[in-house]
């Protein structure tokens, strides 16, 4: 299926979902949004706002009661979900439970084995992916010898080996220290611009959200705002803002003449140097 470049790669239309059909509270209600190819979209929201449920729906793990999800030109249902999963991968929060293989290279190969890929091609893809995340030297290591950050790298390599169009990160960096978090974000930025990857990251980390193109804010199962980090951070004041925004607000409180909108790190530095 050839994608029209103007067509969004992900389109979520009017999706509603509840875990318990007897209760009237919906975990997600009437969610509408779309994502363009090559875009980085962050989904933020408090615990219980329905972020991870939304990820489960995009992956076809849960079936919404209403609405439709279209991914890469396929409308998501039982028949198309395997096609979609070839194009979309997810990194979960717990680095241990997504490590299926018994060594690094086995784990990266797991997804390829599922596609019944011939050995030679598999080997090429696995080593390529391991180079991309800088884990090639560890290819024979077993998971007990890796740190959490390294395991998450392997998980990402496992996805990259599949050469997906969409990468889903479900609080993937929560268990990492700030440095590995930063490194991994940089790696992803690089991969995104090089391979036209679409990234959807579900996160609590506002600094991670700030490096996205667009932010979707979920509140009690509905979208409360959607827009660029600039727009969202100046509007949604009850979130723990990223560092630069906090700095801006404090300066504003002290009566300094700061701009009224959110600034990225570079913009802030630029402004401070003036």
């Amino acid at each position: 299926m050839v994608l029209d470049s103007t067509n969004p790669i992900i389109e979520v239309k009017d999706v509603s979902f509840r875990y318990d059909l007897r209760s009237s509270t919906e975990t997600l209600s009437s969610i509408n949004f779309s994502v363009q190819k090559g875009e980085w979209v962050a989904i933020i929201g408090n615990n219980g706002s329905g972020k991870s449920t939304l990820a489960g729906i995009l992956l076809g793990l849960y079936k919404p009661q209403f609405g439709s999800v279209t991914i890469a030109g396929y409308e998501l249902n039982e028949e198309t979900k395997w096609e979609i999963r070839k194009r979309m991968g997810i990194v979960f929060q717990n680095p241990d439970n997504q490590f299926i293989g018994s060594t690094v290279e086995d784990d990266v190969a797991f997804g390829l084995e599922n596609l019944n890929m011939p050995y030679e091609q598999m080997k090429m893809r696995v080593y390529e992916a391991l180079h991309m995340v800088d884990m090639y030297d560890y290819r024979h290591a077993d998971p007990t010898r890796l740190s959490g950050g390294q395991k998450q790298r392997v998980a990402i390599a496992g996805l990259l080996a599949l050469q997906p169009e969409i990468l889903l990160l479900d609080e993937a960096f929560v268990m990492l220290d700030p440095k590995s978090r930063k490194d991994l974000l940089k790696t992803l930025q690089k991969l995104k611009s090089r391979h036209q990857l679409t990234i959807i990251s579900i996160t609590h980390d506002m600094n991670e959200a700030a490096s996205s193109d667009r932010i979707i804010v979920l509140k009690n199962g509905t979208i409360s705002s959607i827009g660029t980090p600039k727009e969202v951070f100046s509007k949604e004041l009850d979130f723990e803002a990223p560092f630069t925004e906090k700095l801006r607000r404090i300066l504003q409180m002290k009566g300094r003449n700061v701009p009224n909108t959110y600034m990225s790190e570079e913009e802030m530095v630029e402004w401070l140097w003036k």
Binding site: W82, I90, E105, K123
Partner: peptide, 26 residues
């Protein structure tokens, strides 16, 4: 809980029981 999570991961990574799989380990 772990088993459920692992099962989800396997499914999302395209594992289908009864499907033909190749093997990386030789």
């Amino acid at each position: 809980n772990r088993a459920e999570e692992v099962a989800n991961v396997m499914e999302v990574r395209g594992y289908q029981p009864n499907a033909r799989r190749s093997s990386f380990r030789k």
